[in-house]
Design a protein around this nucleic acid. Structure first.
Lengths: 356, 356
DNA sequence: GCAACTATGGCAACCGGTTGCCAAAGGTTG
DNA sequence: CAACCTTTGGCAACCGGTTGCCATAGTTGC
């Protein structure tokens, strides 16, 4: 009714009202007020309503810090990414934030700056401040990760480390599809622009590419390791040209976009002279020029899955509800790939893969 | 020396060691251990070193929650954005995260989903969990914002609300430059794709555009309000065509990219038939097709400035160290603007602006 | 040689909630 | 009507630190 009442916090001291202020005003004990909020069935309905009304009137809000102290649970999750600059992580953050919000959790975000030092420091600093961690593309060693896992619940993304639950975007299948796509377009020599040395997905991708290359009699050349950035792609484009390939598959879209940019600046036509395949399908991949053929990765889903996995770990009821989550990629063909300028279009039918 | 020692936490109970465990092991009181960390000069050097060594050996880490309770300071800042999906906020988050990290603060991120309800809930939920807020493009009413400001330190971005410190990216000057640029290319009828109704910058931009239009004798048409998304841009492109303009200025780059995409799909040449000017220069604006002429906004700087302003608010020593921060935009000319297909190229010299 | 001062460490209250345990009140059953 | 059960609320300890105040011991000054 009185608008001033529910907007301005009423407290004796002028500071935010506490459970004790409410209790005093209601003539009950603080514990009863506490229970009125967190354990309604332990309090008489009438008493409870009186307490809630008074609390509302006084503008009382439970202090999350005080609440977290006895329980040790903050309803907060830590998300650590190596580089916020990378739009890949934008999608991941988005998915994680949504899943966290849906479960009533808050997300704490930290950029580890591609440094395992910084990452470790961040984990230590946050350790009792959050209920668990999602480490995306962690730069920590396997040993360090296991160690951290002993201390707090933790899920890794894009890593496979023995006992830790992880979310993996497996581009092996997608990479094979991309390689077959290139082979069918007559490409015979393909460059692979490799990502960071420690990357699990980089290894998967390179192996998948090679397996198709062997079967199809293509030759491959690996360029890298490269930082997963546009600038590195710009620089690597020249290396591609020197290698005299007709197609390039890149570790991620940022590299591919860099390559596109540089080739364009040099007047080298894409896909007329060189075909380019990216990976991830980040924001921008569909409207760059030419629109990028890429492996579409369910990044947002991965962020969501990581948080769900972590929440499962926290929930003592359904312990170990699931270990790893493996998400597939699929090939999205746009305009950056075309028939090879040298080879003739191969119309070899795709052979069924051995199911090993 | 013994590697197991500094990695495995040693505690009597099996839980993480506390200040009391360290104190017991050292034969001192808990308060002394506390002081050894937070008030070194109050403890004898020898005692202190003994305590630190023992703490290290036991793998003791201060509990940030327990630390925050008496002081009320969590060394954590809340950053609320209406839509993480928007790359504009990616840059803002990046800047904010960096500034926070540099000051030893942690960032809590929340997406308010373009809803003032959600935003208010998030503020309330986080209120005692963070030391202050950065509200980016807040959807809250002025009254609510002032109310929140009474409760906790708070900085707004892209809003101007009487007593609250804010960071503003003022595109008025940039918009005038863009309008002059279009005028000099012979455009006489310009569409403006408006952003959300409540947007402060949207109003600034529209007014700046109109002021140049009046001076230059151009006609303008306002389309919107529009959601600041690619999809809205796609839809708005058709409206632009119907309006029979030769140039369009958009509220942000997402809209511009949507417009570009749709015009391309319809076979309408940019800039041959229609020129497009975006705003913000987000990731992707330079490699879309054609590369977008846009107002480059120092978004990351804005994020950084917002956090710095907030930290200044928290720091009782240098209270009110600065109120608003206004950051300018500048016109970045790329390939989405060109001479008007109808008008002849105007070579009217730019008149000096009245300095009012 | 004694008063005054300083350096150092301990005690205990406190931050704002949560929760185990107990007591009082009221209701039920035989 | 007594024995017992259930409901409800209070007391007090606790979560893990921080900090004001005090006690002790050692140092300095006169």
């Amino acid at each position: 009714m009185v608008s001033a009442r529910d907007s301005v916090p009423v407290s004796p001291s002028g500071r935010a009202p506490t459970i004790h202020d409410v209790a005093a005003r209601c003539g009950v004990a603080a514990s009863t007020v506490s229970r009125a909020f967190s354990r309604p069935e332990r309090v008489n309905l009438a008493t409870r309503q009186r307490i809630l009304a008074t609390a509302e009137e006084m503008g009382y809000r439970p202090n999350p810090i005080a609440r977290a102290l006895p329980s040790g649970r903050t309803r907060t999750l830590g998300l650590l990414v190596p580089d916020i600059t990378n739009p890949f992580f934008l999608d991941l953050i988005r998915g994680a934030e949504r899943a966290a919000a849906a479960a009533g959790y808050t997300l704490v975000l930290a950029d580890t700056d591609e440094s395992s030092e910084t990452e470790l420091t961040a984990v230590r600093r946050l350790t009792r401040a959050v209920d668990g961690f999602v480490l995306a593309s962690s730069r920590l060693s396997d040993a360090r990760l296991r160690e951290a896992y002993a201390t707090s619940p933790l899920v890794v993304v894009n890593r496979r480390v023995a006992p830790l639950p992880g979310v993996l975007i497996d581009s092996a299948h997608g990479t094979r599809a991309a390689a077959e796509h290139l082979a069918s377009l007559g490409h015979e020599r393909i460059a692979y622009l490799a990502g960071p040395r420690a990357s699990w997905s980089d290894q998967r991708r390179w192996r998948a590419l090679q397996s198709v290359a062997r079967r199809r009699g293509l030759s491959t050349v690996r360029i890298g390791p490269l930082a997963p950035t546009v600038d590195a792609g710009v620089a690597a484009a020249d290396a591609i040209v020197l290698e005299d390939v007709t197609a390039a598959v890149t570790f991620n879209d940022l590299l591919a976009i860099g390559v596109l940019r540089r080739l364009r600046a040099r007047g080298i036509g894409v896909p007329d002279q060189i075909s380019v395949v990216g990976c991830d399908d980040i924001f921008g991949a569909d409207f760059c020029h030419p629109p990028l053929t890429t492996l579409t990765a369910p990044i947002e889903t991965a962020g969501r899955a990581a948080v769900d996995l972590l929440l499962g770990l926290l929930d003592t009821d359904r312990q170990g509800s699931g270990r790893d989550v493996v998400l597939p990629t699929r090939l999205t063909i746009r305009d950056s790939t075309g028939t090879s300028p040298t080879g003739t279009r191969r119309l070899v039918p795709l052979t069924a893969e051995p199911s090993s």
